[in-house]
Design a binder for these strands. Structure first.
Length: 586
RNA sequence: GUGCCCGUAGCUCAAUCGGAUAGAGCACCAGCCUUCUAAGCUGGGGGUUACAGGUUCGAUCCCUGUCGGGCACGCCA
């Protein structure tokens, strides 16, 4: 038997049920998408089908009666032990033990490709995630998007998609100007020039670090005329504190005027610095991108103006109060949106339209944005813009990740980048470790709120579920080392001896892996992989405690070793999807 | 005020997009190491799925309402 000729049981049985359905009912009454689910109880067989219940109404017969007709019409299968009608009209399928036992050959031949599927059919899919403003270190909230995006990308790749990972760099906006100003003010302080530091500028220590770097490299090179900085700001303000947006904007404008060409240097320095830090941080978290896409480049290449012109040409824009508006209400948005301000500047939305147009022009079959839940109100206008440009908005799918609320010392911790009071992703990694953090993040469904208790995460780092899974992997490795044989020799051994309930349950669990992976890809749900791994590890640990593997009877020993080697392979493949290591020893 | 998300065991979360007796972990109680790793295993108590109706063979899931929590509602990014 080779790895490629093993059928997907689920697909195989759905095909048989489809044939039975065609024999029993007419085309118009037929159910288009036959569902086959795994059973929760062994007495219900391995797979269950509710087709008969769905056909009860159109056929005007009782579900059990239809179920029996379907069973009678079911073509024979070499993998089926028996088929039963049960309960309200379920059709329960029982897999032959031999089919389960032989599945191990498939796993051991497939090795690290076991679980991979063809759902994606090589379609090009882009996943954009994190895309945090490069104005400070990533915090634990960004970590969640990073972990989910990276794991989902891996899952989609395993499911047969051609995945491109992208980080959208917001390097063109006001936030970058505020960071530039903040750094310059700190730099001036190092030159003993003290100007009140605005409350709403970036307070973090990392700003001082960057100022220090500039100071060390260039001394007083960028001091210029700081006395002009406070021009047109009322004296009264200076006496107290600066904390309004208008004051901040005035400071930025003055800074640009004073520094002239040198403004670009500082701006570029802080951007490069923060982006480098971000890239490094993510890399250490196991998250890498194929493309870092610059927002500024959209302006530099005229793509923003081009996108807006295109909308104008298609009659979706109008002028009001001196600004240019996009009629997004025509596409389900609750109000129209400004794309170009009265002062001629394009809005963030305008560059986002250009960005999404560009994504589509790059020819992706599907585009996924992983956004924080606070952006949900933004979806209708972006999809609306795509529709207005006569693009297929269905190709864009937005996966919302709910907020992570951080608790520290039993209290809600602030997470504002501006104030500088936040727990960074780097701190989290150092305190609980990369593996534990990555696993912890995907242990929850992404559209569920996440309570992140730092104290718990730290104190329980030894009880984190990730160690439970890794421990199962290490245990198998340990047994195989003591067996002292070649694992490849187990690929085709006779596995008929695996007949205990625990062994058959484990076999079925392994068979579930490809289906679980496909489901995770379809539903954008990495948490399914994490839960699957924990369940598989649980069944293994239980089996480990009840059964000896290195028994004298060689056929039995080899069969059991083939089973645990397959478990190890599956754990390893699953952990790899989450970028969690699979250690040989613990 | 309007819109979106959510409410499941003491706590943190699942439940294969409407299926059979709603499941795990933590915590609590009682056991298991001279045998392949005890970061493990076995057993136990824990629930009116926020509440009230509705839809149907069948509802944690779909619809309506109430209560409670989060988020978003800018010519900010």
């Amino acid at each position: 038997m080779t790895s490629s000729d093993f059928p997907n049981f689920k697909t195989h049985f759905i095909g048989l049920l489809q044939q039975a359905s065609n024999a029993v009912t007419s085309l118009e009454a037929a159910v288009s998408d036959i569902e086959l689910t795994r059973t929760k109880q062994a007495s219900h067989g391995d797979y269950s089908c509710n087709l008969a219940m769905q056909l009860a109404k159109p056929l005007h017969k009782s579900p059990r009666e239809i179920a029996q007709l379907l069973v009678n019409a079911l073509p024979p299968s070499t993998y089926l032990e028996k088929v039963e009608v049960a309960g309200a009209g379920f059709i329960n399928l029982f897999l032959k033990n031999s089919a389960k036992q032989q599945f191990l050959h498939y796993i051991l031949h497939s090795k690290n490709t076991f679980g991979n599927g063809t759902l994606g059919q090589g379609k090009r899919i882009q996943v954009e995630f994190v895309s945090a403003n490069p104005t400070g270190p990533l915090h634990v909230g960004h970590g969640r998007g990073a972990a989910i995006g990276a794991s989902l990308s891996n899952i989609l790749a395993a499911a047969g998609f051609d995945v491109s990972r992208e980080f959208y760099v917001n390097d063109a906006g006001r936030q970058m100007d505020i960071l530039t100003l903040s750094t310059w003010l700190r730099y001036l302080e190092l030159n003993h020039i003290h100007i009140p530091f605005p409350q709403n500028a970036y307070q973090g220590e990392y700003v001082k670090t960057m100022a220090q770097q500039i100071f060390q490299a260039h001394a007083q090179r960028y001091v210029h005329q700081p006395e002009l900085l406070l021009d047109s700001l009322p004296e009264a303000v200076l006496a107290t504190e600066m904390n309004t947006d208008e004051q901040l904007d005035k400071l930025i404008a003055n800074t640009k005027k004073i520094l002239g060409q040198d403004y670009a240097y500082i701006h570029n320095f802080v951007l490069t610095e923060q982006l480098g830090d971000c890239r490094n941080d993510l890399m250490e978290f196991g998250v890498e991108f194929d493309t870092w896409f610059s927002e500024q480049s959209l302006f530099d290449n005229g793509l923003v103006a081009h996108a807006i012109e295109l909308l104008a040409k298609k009659q979706h824009l109008y002028q009001q109060d001196g600004a240019t508006w996009f009629r997004s209400t025509n596409f389900g948005d609750e109000k129209d949106r400004v794309v170009q301000r009265e002062n001629g500047q394009f809005t963030y939305f305008a560059s986002d339209i250009a960005y999404h147009l560009n994504k589509f022009e790059r020819g992706f079959d599907q585009v996924i944005n992983i956004w924080g839940a606070d952006h949900h109100g933004y979806i209708p206008r972006v999809k609306g813009a795509l529709q207005a440009l006569d693009l297929d908005a269905e190709k864009l799918q937005i996966a919302l990740v709910q907020f992570a609320v951080l608790y520290r010392n039993g209290k809600k911790a602030p997470m504002s980048t501006r104030s500088g009071e936040f727990v960074t992703l780097r701190e989290l990694r150092q305190e609980v470790g990369k593996d534990a953090a990555r696993f912890f993040y995907v242990m929850r469904k992404s559209d569920q709120h996440l309570d992140f208790d730092m104290d718990l995460a730290k104190s329980q780092s030894n009880e984190n579920p990730v160690y439970y899974v890794q421990y199962a992997h290490a245990r198998v490795c340990s047994v195989l080392v003591q067996w002292d044989g070649n694992v490849d020799d187990l690929q085709d051994v006779n596995t008929e001896a695996l007949s205990s309930p625990a062994e058959l349950a484990l076999l079925q669990k392994l068979i579930d892996f490809p289906d679980t992976l496909e489901m995770a890809a379809k539903e954008f749900s990495p948490h399914l992989i994490a839960f699957y791994l924990r369940e598989l590890a649980s069944e293994f640990h239980s089996y480990y405690n009840s059964t000896r593997f290195l028994v004298p009877e060689i056929p039995l020993q080899h069969a059991r070793l083939a089973l645990i080697a397959s478990i190890r392979q599956t754990l390893s493949n699953g952990l790899l999807l989450l970028d969690v290591s699979a250690p040989d020893k613990m």
